[in-house]
Amino acid sequence: MLSEREDELGARLKEFEGRAAAVAGVGKDPVNAPMIRHWCEAMGDTNPAYTGPDAIAPPTMLQAWTMAGLSGQAGPPGGTEAFGELLALLDAAGCTSVVATDCEQEYVRPLRPGDIVTFDAVIESVSDRKTTKLGTGYFVTTRTDVRVGTELAGTHRFRILKYAPTPRMSRKGRKEGPSSHRRPRPRPVVNRDNAGFWEGVERGRLLIQRCTGCGTLRHPWLPGCNACGCLEWDTVESSGEGTVFSYVVMHHPPFPAFDPPYAVVLVELAEGVRMVSNVVGVAYDKVRIGMPVEAEFRRYGTDAGAGDESPFVLPVFRAREGS
């Protein structure tokens, strides 16, 4: 995934701003009583203004008169090559899904049966790349001017999100397609400052850094002491016992390797430092502040086909008996 700065696609998409999305489109049907009646039936709208000899169309139907319908899935009537090209670029980038997010309509003159609707649309804006809970993509805003003859009947601003869908998480008991295999768990990021910690974890030991200047314990591992600035340190092995200091339950957004909902806990070890981890042996909704826990070491990346080069160990915390 590219970063916002490296978003070349976004820059290309921006070039479409101001270009026409539809030119001299003509509504497939004149404004007519049957379509108005079907609309009112669907909406449960009994407003008498929409029936009888002086009927007007429900103003919120504005867009319906411009729709291509079943015979025009390729694009709106009058749709331009530029708009088609914009959508094709997004499709090619994997942003194949679309959802409408905003609709702003202004009604200048009522539409009445017999009116023939014409319209022009412009690509008003294309957003920067955005990540939503549906997926990552771009908001595209168009503005359509709807006319009867030369008279403006209304304007219609419409925003869609064209996005690459986030893979759905498998839930217990739900059937999933063959492509939904659980993604491998992220590996710890090991660097020079924290290598000692992860070496300890590999051997089933939870090591806490201790400043040799002032004796202050610290976690996560850092090059120097926050209390006295001393760069010298050694380690003490934690008993692994602690209590839940705080926790959150993750529902959204789902991450590929995890199956929400699950609890993320901040454990305060008996030695006094705190550590973020998962809790096992207790339902996510039964985790409580103050609950006694003890460290346990779990091996990950051993699933056949999980795609990991080598297994690795992570510390987790198990709820203790009697909690």
Partner: peptide, 29 residues
């Protein structure tokens, strides 16, 4: 979104009656 738009319009005109005229409807889903 068009149905949501229609329902929002209906909700307001149901209340204000047939003489009320919709000028603008802005919705976010």
């Amino acid at each position: 979104i068009l149905t949501t738009n229609g329902l929002v319009g209906r909700y307001v005109t149901d209340h204000f009656g047939p003489a009320a005229v919709l000028r603008r409807v802005v919705i976010r889903l």
